[in-house]
């Protein structure tokens, strides 16, 4: 068997190339505002695709991403903020001495953010996966709260509710977009391997999966840790994009937004998670015109702040009414091409 490249693989290569061209083009020619939205979209693609791995692919209804994103953001921030900037930031109490010495370059900071989050996920997996279904949601929800509270109540490290500022703005579209591409490829490769099959089997019927010799705890832990890793990296990118972080940023609403994205796109579909991100993160920006005064059929309406959220919610409701399983269901983009080919066979 020589190296045969299937049509599918060519399509993947073409899509990665297209995404790269788009990143280069938009960071050179788009205005600052658009680039900022694209940065947000890229980071949320990383988060949504990895959250989808545990929640959609493995079917473990967990509500913890805000916790892992917060950890990633804080680790990156602590490693990137210069000692001089740290000196004047800690207003509540003096930081621990080791906080002052923490320093690393951007790549190392991001990697450490991911690894730190993944290790914590590994430690959490044993207690968390003792429970299933609704109970799992409650346990993981609690984890998100705990991280936020820890961030507030340990000002020696995190500067408490004031948060960390003056984080160097390292994130740009090359970083966020590039890592988003890597995250999507890595997660698709996991999904299309025995590990991904085991995760899907756990989602469909955990007992039957066990009866096939699948170590379901291992499958869930792998999904959880991979998901946490990319959530940590995403958190790091977010910190280096916003340049300042505080515990309030990572409350439950953050998780909730990701949940909307993956449910809208289709639980279990990586393509769906990407589409969902573009629609939710991009859509809420593009619909800003709805908040402003409008001229309709000769009438002029006054400015209605919040109108876009009303319209956005209506669109969400309609999509969920007519596509119960989300836009993509459990399908991926390639399924549309393969199903069309079946007729020829």
């Amino acid at each position: 068997m020589g190296i045969t490249v299937s049509k599918n693989q060519w399509m993947n290569v073409a899509m990665v190339a297209f995404a790269m061209c788009f990143i280069v083009f938009s960071s050179n020619y788009f205005d600052e505002y658009s680039v900022r939205i694209l940065n947000n979209i890229a980071i949320f693609i990383i988060l949504a695709v990895s959250y989808n791995l545990i929640n959609g692919v493995t079917g473990q209804f967990s509500l913890e991403p805000n916790g892992f994103v917060a950890i990633g953001a804080y680790v990156t921030a602590l490693l990137l903020v210069s000692p001089e900037a740290k000196q004047y930031q800690y207003a509540i109490v003096d930081p621990y001495p080791f906080v002052m010495t923490l320093h690393a370059n951007f790549v190392v900071a991001l990697l450490l953010s991911g690894i730190f989050a993944a290790l914590l996920a590994l430690a959490l997996a044993a207690p968390v996966f003792r429970v299933r279904g609704d109970y799992l949601a409650i346990v993981t929800l609690g984890f998100g709260f705990i991280i936020k509270i820890l961030a507030i109540n340990n000002p020696e490290i995190t500067n408490g509710s004031l948060g960390l500022n003056d984080i160097p703005e390292f994130s740009n579209l090359y970083w966020t977009g590039g890592i988003a591409i890597i995250a999507v490829i890595v997660i698709l490769n996991i999904v299309n391997s025995k590990f991904g099959r085991a995760m899907k089997a756990v989602r469909d019927d955990e007992d039957a999966a066990t009866a096939m010799g699948v170590n379901t705890f291992k499958a869930k832990t792998l999904a959880f840790c991979t998901s946490a890793f990319f959530e940590g990296v995403g958190g790091g990118l977010l910190a280096a994009l916003l340049t300042s972080i505080s515990p309030d940023l990572f409350d439950f609403f953050f998780t909730f937004q990701l949940l909307i994205i993956i449910v809208l796109g289709g639980l279990g579909s990586t393509t769906g998670a990407i589409i969902g991100t573009v629609l939710v993160i991009g859509g809420s920006e593009w619909m800003r015109f709805l908040d402003e005064p409008m001229h309709l059929f000769g009438y002029t309406t006054t400015a209605m702040p919040g109108m876009r959220m009303v319209v956005f919610s209506l669109i969400l409701i309609f999509i969920m009414l007519f596509a119960r399983e989300g836009i993509m269901g459990k399908r991926e983009l390639k399924d549309f091409f393969t199903s069309r080919k079946k007729g020829e066979k």
Binding site: K194, R197, K200, A201, D204, M212, G213, V214
Partner: peptide
């Protein structure tokens, strides 16, 4: 496994 193809169902048996 309801969301999976017949082949994927059998492939699960080869997981380990």
């Amino acid at each position: 496994f309801s969301s999976m193809s017949v082949l994927d169902n059998v492939l699960i048996g080869f997981d380990f």
